[in-house]
Design a binder for these strands. Structure first.
Lengths: 188, 188
DNA sequence: CGAACTGTTGAGCGGACTCAAGGTAGGTGG
DNA sequence: CCACCTACCTTGAGTCCGCTCAACAGTTCG
């Protein structure tokens, strides 16, 4: 990603769309589909976006002469797996408010990594896309935003976001009594 | 995996355990952690299990002489990503009954791949592990099993499962009015 | 202006969680 | 062998979060 933003999504068996990721500048997407020369995910830009294509064939060829490249590729794939599993944990064990807070903080952190403001930013995605990604409905997303604003955690105006009390959001995520759903098997 | 079964899980920020996968004979696990020489996931056997270790360093070295190996590694990593994203879709867009049905059918299919019975099998994991993996509570898992049994979709006796009406389970997953949560953005 | 889309808010309902009680199986010690 | 303990599983009753349905406001565009 050079600039702009992209969402990736796949269509499940019954034609329903499932958003699988949002990508911001500096990030790479499209790691699926290397298995079968065929991408499970589609991707669309959510705003004016410029990207840099990396032809996999050439990358592969290059890696025969520079072995460190394939090592790096594998690292990136592995990172993708880890971030997917974070999302799994988020979806499996957290409430609607926690999920939205997580997403906002994730975006904030990723913007900071690009030396952009981590407290004031514009969400590239619609409420519908957020809700789909986080496994909830549009209404719940909207209500969660309103709730956060009432609580003075942030200010929201359409897609413009200003994070006011990041610690409060942080704490919300890692909160007690928050749908623990913990497996209770003793160790082996 | 040679024989037996393993679960992988990670510990989130607040010490809660999140099961990220179940592994059956013929499968490979541990693809995370290649990024940082450090595994995000832990893994424990759920029963007597024998596995075959693949030292990554040796694999890496071997791939310098046999390039097709790294291609294969990348394929497997990519598959892992795809299966993780299936789980994401499952968690994001499906009801409790649908999630359990999906898991049962997935196990059934994977057993079939190993030429084992796909209709009668023993679940290696506890109800608690299932509930954690699927993002629900133990009680809900238990009730879902009872429900399926009442509906004559399967027979369940502790961990022994007999699938009677697989098509019904299939249809349950890909059902109408099933929590669509569909993003409604027009195409680009 | 009207149509279409996105986002917000309210009322009501239902599925899944919580709390709590009982049942079953395996392990240990008297 | 039986009493006891400790998981693990099941079932019930009640509550609450988040979904559904619906109305309305703000934007964009023809």
């Amino acid at each position: 990603m050079r600039s702009g933003s992209v969402k990736s999504y796949c269509i499940d068996n019954e034609g329903r769309e499932q958003v699988t990721g949002f990508y911001l500048p500096g990030e790479i997407f499209g790691w699926d589909g290397l298995a079968e020369n065929y991408h499970q995910n589609a991707a669309v830009a959510m705003e004016t976006t410029s990207i840099c294509e990396i032809p996999y064939g050439q990358l592969e060829q290059l890696s025969t002469t520079i072995p460190s490249i394939q090592k790096h590729v594998i690292k990136l794939l592995s990172k993708e797996i880890n971030s997917d599993q974070k999302l799994i944990a988020l979806l499996a064990g957290n409430s609607a408010h926690q999920r939205l807070a997580s997403l906002l903080l994730s975006i904030s952190a990723r913007l900071a990594q690009q030396k952009l403001s981590s407290t004031r930013f514009r969400l590239p995605m619609s409420r519908g896309e957020i809700s789909n990604y986080l496994g909830m409905t549009v209404e719940t997303v909207s209500r969660a935003f309103s709730h956060f604003q009432r609580k003075k955690y942030l200010k929201v105006n359409k897609k413009e976001i200003e994070l006011i009390d990041k610690p409060a959001l942080q704490q919300l995520i890692s909160n007690p009594e928050a749908r623990s759903i913990t497996s209770q098997r003793s160790g082996y």
